[in-house]
Each structure stands twice: as structure tokens, then as C-alpha cells.
Design a binder for these strands. Structure first.
Length: 573
DNA sequence: GCCGTTTTCGGCCCGACTGTTTTCAGTCG
């Protein structure tokens, strides 16, 4: 089994952390971290690139030395420099870095003076009051360590963006009640629509002397105030999420929004470009010498560099700056482009609402069509449909379509792909449907080869339209099953089958990287909510955001088509 | 360790906040 990109990136990150503690040249440390980040974001595997004889030093951030190290890792599974570092410095020190307020310098000091190697050592030293006497430490830091010890045990928690949205909206409503708030925006990975966020960065502009900071730290959900300043404060909420509030002047709002939206990789590219043009960018504005040339609006920051506006979803350092320079940014699909939803359940299986409620909700969203796709019989826990019940539902849909204006319900099914690659209902009934959404719900643990062949065999069925939630992952709950997606995408393209971007916030499956892969391979996709309630149809925006993060345009998303054209695609002709 | 329209050496994004200091180092984002 070839070594994956993320495994290689992990080795470089670990090496970077250890060298950081050892006090190695910080730019060398950064070079390793930078390389790890680049490697994680690569669209293809390093193992294949090396096998194909490609020159790794052509990748940004990968020079001669790191390229050789990657080849060593791929050949031997080991990174000698890391093993040497591990022999010098106990790996348990890495856990200490996870504690807020402990960085490489303090960890090194704790290790070299008090022989603190583990979290247990750290707790003991802190309780014995030994830490406060170290140079550069003091009682406050000792106390902070004790308070944050549990963080290192928990590990980094990331929240679904959907959860964060509820938290952010409540907090914004709380802040809005204070006088003097003008603009307010959540920046960070939240604004880039990453599927999960680690914390919230909120920016506000205020008129005059607003007590917004007081209001912020007094929020009822605050468990701990981490810092409190005039322009920045940080709190930890009772649910563990950290929230930063920054007060910026209105003439700097755009620059601050740009800066705090990130990503880090994107900002480094933008700033490097600015330096080349004799400009300096910080969160206060764009400066030529002492003169501010932009800052109030985010788009002006890009305009100063001669760039068109780059939407937050693209700001991941995946070539968007170069594309902007060449005027080749994609025209991303938008929510308004979506003409219908092709995956929805009713109370006939595990949904909550009936046909008509779902239809009316879809019509209220301005849709032209909605596919009803309840489960097939194999999904017994959802009371999946057999042929008889499915035919009854089809008749009910015909009746409702006759009666309803302004929306067409499509007769569909979410049919299970059985372990042998057959579909869970006979072709005799599948052929009478408008579309078939096909999915894997059982036997996730097959080998990659078997899982892939199972799905490819299912695609051989002429009635296979859409592969639903293609990797089966549930964010923070269930890992994706092993499957050869490039092969499945190539097969889908060849046969006229489609892949789904499932918009459920805990699925978002395909993910953004897969969307990029689909874009490169030219396979067509659909964005579907998999709604189990009428309000669930509103989650479409999450699927659209994921598609946008994957650089997808309208013409690659089939449910942007009018119904007549959609039917042609579904006919697989 | 990477990189090059200041090109093979000497830079490397940059500012806020905290705590421990008395001018700054460490951490964080």
C-alpha cells in the first residue's frame, strides 16, 4: 500500500514541531510546515508522481532537500531526520504544545529546566508551584497551564459549519443590541464555507465609543474570557468554541475582512504579490509608503493588486491568485442557478413530511422540480419501499402533479447498491421512474477494490443515474469508505452517470477536493439536500458552497438545467 | 529549507495581547 500524501505531510509536521521545540531556525521549521500544507492540498498522490518520474521540486515550497526526503519516505516508509529528532527530544512534548499559551519556547524551557516530558509531569510541576519561578514564567502562566491542561487531552475540536452558524447568529443578535454597531461580519474559515470550523472570528465597526467589548465578554454563553483588549477580545464559550471579536475602523473594514478571512496560504500569496508591487498590506489597509491606498472595501484590496475580486470560497491557496492574475477565475455556480432538488425523503420511509408538504416547500424555494427518492426495501430501519409501495407512491405523485401548479414532482427512489453490485429493486419498476439515486448503506468495510467494483457494477445497470453521498463519510463521526473515486468518476463520465454533492451539513460528500477532481475529470454532478423534512430543502446552500469551494461552474451541475434538458441527461442517451 | 523583475545570498506576513518585565519575549491567528 503506497504511503498517502497526508501521511507524508504528518511526518513533516511532526518534524517541524520537534525542531521548533529544539529552537531550530524558525524559517526552516516554517519550510517544513509549508511543505506539509502544500502536500495535503495536492490533487494527486506523491507516490504516483514519483512513480511517473515527475520533478517534485516544481511544486511550490518543495525544494531539492524536501523532494529527496519525500522520495526516501516513499521508498522506506521512514524519515531519518524525524527519527533523529525523536531520539533527541521526547515525542510526548508535542502534546504540551496543544495547550493554549504553551509554545515551543516554553515547552523547551519546561523540559530543560524541570525535566517536564509529559502532561502528568506538567500538572505535577504546576501544582507544586515550580513553574512560576522559571525565568519568563510567573504565577499567571502556571495558573493558565492548570486551567488548560484538559485541552491537550481532548485534542482539537472542530465544529460543523452548520453548528457554528447557529452559534454565530445568536452571538451576532446579542451584539447587535448594543448601540453604535455598524458593520458586523464573521470572517475566517466560516466565511470561506469550510465544512468545519475551529473557532469564530467576528469583525465589527462601531460609531464612536461603543461598549461592544463589554457586551461581548458579558454574553451568557461565555465560559472564560481569554483576553480582553480595546480592538481584540477572545472568549471560550461553554460548548468549548473560541470566539474572537475585533473592532476595526470603517476605513479598514475591507482590509481587516480580507486579512481575517484567510486562508493563511491565500494571504501569504496576496502579501507576497503586494510586496512585489511596492505595496504593503496589513489588516488596516493597503499602503504605498505611508499612504493608504485602499482598505474600506475588500474588493478594493484586490483591485489595488490589479486582481478581480476573489470570493472567500476560493481562498485556499489552490491556484486562485494565479487564476485571478490570468483572468481565469471560474464563474462559480450559485444558489440561484439551482432549479430543483433531486434527493428528498417523505414520511413514507424515514422522512417527516408528506408529498404535498415537500412539493410546496420546493415551490416556495422557486424550484421547477423536486425528486422524491425514498429508501428501497434493503434499508429496513427506514421501512424502505418494496415494488408495491413504490408503485403506490408513483401513482400518488401523478395525482399530485395533476393538481399542483408551478412545481413538478419527479418519481424517484434512493435504491441501495447491494454488496454484489446489483440494485435493490427490479429493473421492471426502476424503468418506470424518472430517476434513480443509488447509494451504499451497508458493508462499508469492503476493501477499496471490492467497494469500487461493487459501485462500478451497479453503474452497469442502465437505470443507474446518480451515485449518492459517494464516500459515505459523516464528518467527525464516520470515516469515508475506501473507494477509488477517480476510477468511479471516469466510469460515470463514460456512462452518463452523475455523482452527488450531498448537502447535509454532516455529509458534504463529495468534499471540496473531490469537487476539484470532478472538475478536472469533467464528470457531471448534482447538488442535492437529501432532505428528510420540508425545511431540510433549505440546506441546498451548503451543497452549493461545497461546489464553489471545488471551483465548479453552473454547466457542470445538472440540476441547474430546465426540466426538459434534465430528463435528457437522466435518460443516459 | 525555499526562493529569485533587489536572483545563489539574504531575505522569509505582520500586528495584538499577555505576562513578566522596565523594553520585550512568547504566543496566537
Amino acid at each position: 500500500m503506497a504511503i498517502s500524501n497526508s501521511e507524508i505531510a504528518d511526518l513533516f509536521d511532526e518534524l517541524a514541531d520537534l525542531l521548533d521545540i529544539e529552537g531550530e531556525n524558525p524559517y526552516k521549521v516554517r519550510a517544513y510546515r509549508n511543505a506539509a500544507r502544500i502536500i495535503r492540498g495536492l490533487p494527486c498522490s506523491l507516490a504516483e508522481m514519483v512513480a511517473d518520474g515527475e520533478d517534485l521540486t516544481r511544486l511550490p515550497g518543495i525544494g531539492e532537500r524536501i523532494a529527496r526526503k519525500i522520495e526516501t519516505i516513499l521508498r522506506t516508509g521512514r524519515l531519518p531526520q524525524l527519527e533523529q529528532a525523536l531520539a533527541r527530544t521526547p515525542p510526548t512534548l508535542l502534546q504540551l504544545l496543544r495547550i493554549d499559551g504553551l509554545g515551543p519556547k516554553r515547552v523547551k524551557a519546561l523540559f530543560s529546566t524541570l525535566d517536564v516530558k509529559t502532561l502528568e509531569d506538567l500538572e505535577r510541576a504546576a501544582r507544586q508551584g515550580k513553574i512560576r519561578h522559571l525565568p519568563g514564567f510567573g504565577p499567571k502562566i502556571e495558573e493558565l497551564i492548570l486551567r488548560h491542561l484538559d485541552q491537550a487531552l481532548e485534542g482539537e475540536r472542530r465544529y460543523l459549519r452548520f453548528e457554528a452558524e447557529g452559534i454565530a447568529n445568536a452571538l451576532i443578535a446579542h451584539l447587535r443590541q448594543v448601540l453604535g454597531i455598524d458593520r458586523i461580519e464573521v470572517a475566517g474559515s466560516y466565511r470561506r464555507w469550510k465544512e468545519t470550523v475551529g473557532d469564530l472570528d467576528i469583525l465589527v465597526t462601531v460609531c464612536g465609543d461603543s461598549p461592544v467589548m463589554d457586551r461581548f465578554v458579558a454574553y451568557e454563553g461565555v465560559a472564560e474570557v481569554l483576553s480582553r483588549g480595546t480592538t481584540r477580545s477572545s472568549v471560550r464559550l461553554r460548548n468549548g468554541m473560541q470566539v474572537d471579536l475585533r473592532v476595526v475602523a470603517s476605513e479598514s473594514f475591507g482590509a481587516a475582512l480580507q486579512y481575517f478571512t484567510g486562508s493563511k496560504a491565500h494571504n501569504i500569496e496576496i502579501r507576497t504579490l503586494a510586496v512585489k508591487q511596492g505595496l504593503k498590506i496589513n489588516e488596516y489597509g493597503v499602503f504605498r509608503g505611508e499612504t493608504r491606498v485602499a482598505g474600506e472595501e475588500e474588493s478594493d484590496v484586490y483591485a489595488c493588486l490589479g486582481l478581480p475580486y476573489i470570493v472567500p470560497e476560493l481562498r485556499e491557496g489552490r491556484g486562485e491568485v494565479e487564476a485571478a492574475q490570468q483572468r481565469q477565475l471560474p464563474k462559480l455556480v450559485t444558489l440561484a442557478d439551482i432549479r430543483g432538488d433531486l434527493h428528498a425523503h417523505t414520511r413514507e420511509t424515514d422522512g417527516r413530511d408528506d408529498l404535498e408538504t415537500m412539493a410546496l416547500a420546493a415551490r416556495a424555494l422557486g424550484y421547477e422540480y423536486l425528486a422524491i427518492t425514498d429508501h428501497s426495501r434493503r434499508v429496513t430501519v427506514a421501512r424502505g419501499l418494496d415494488e408495491k409501495r413504490l408503485r403506490a407512491q408513483m401513482a400518488a405523485i401523478d395525482t399530485l402533479n395533476d393538481r399542483l401548479e408551478g412545481i413538478t414532482l419527479l418519481k424517484g427512489i434512493e435504491v441501495d447498491i447491494l454488496e454484489n453490485g446489483r440494485l435493490d429493486l427490479p429493473d421492471s419498476v426502476l424503468k418506470d421512474l424518472d430517476l434513480r439515486v443509488c447509494s451504499v448503506h451497508y458493508r462499508f468495510n469492503l476493501s477499496k477494490r471490492k467497494q469500487t467494483e461493487r459501485i462500478l457494477r451497479a453503474m452497469d445497470n442502465p437505470y443507474f443515474n446518480i451515485l449518492a453521498h459517494p464516500t459515505g463519510r459523516l464528518i467527525n463521526k464516520r470515516r469515508p469508505y475506501a473507494v477509488d473515486l477517480p476510477r468511479i468518476m471516469a466510469a460515470a463520465k463514460e456512462r452518463g452517470c452523475l455523482l452527488e454533492i450531498n448537502a447535509q451539513p454532516e455529509r458534504l460528500d463529495l468534499n471540496d477536493e473531490h469537487c476539484l477532481m470532478a472538475r478536472d475529470l469533467g464528470v457531471k454532478l448534482v447538488i442535492s439536500t437529501d432532505a428528510h423534512t420540508a425545511t431540510g430543502l433549505q440546506l441546498m446552500r451548503y451543497g452549493v458552497a461545497q461546489a464553489r469551494r471545488g471551483w465548479l461552474e453552473k454547466d457542470q451541475i445538472v440540476n441547474t438545467l430546465p426540466l426538459a434538458q434534465l430528463r435528457q441527461v437522466l435518460a443516459r442517451t
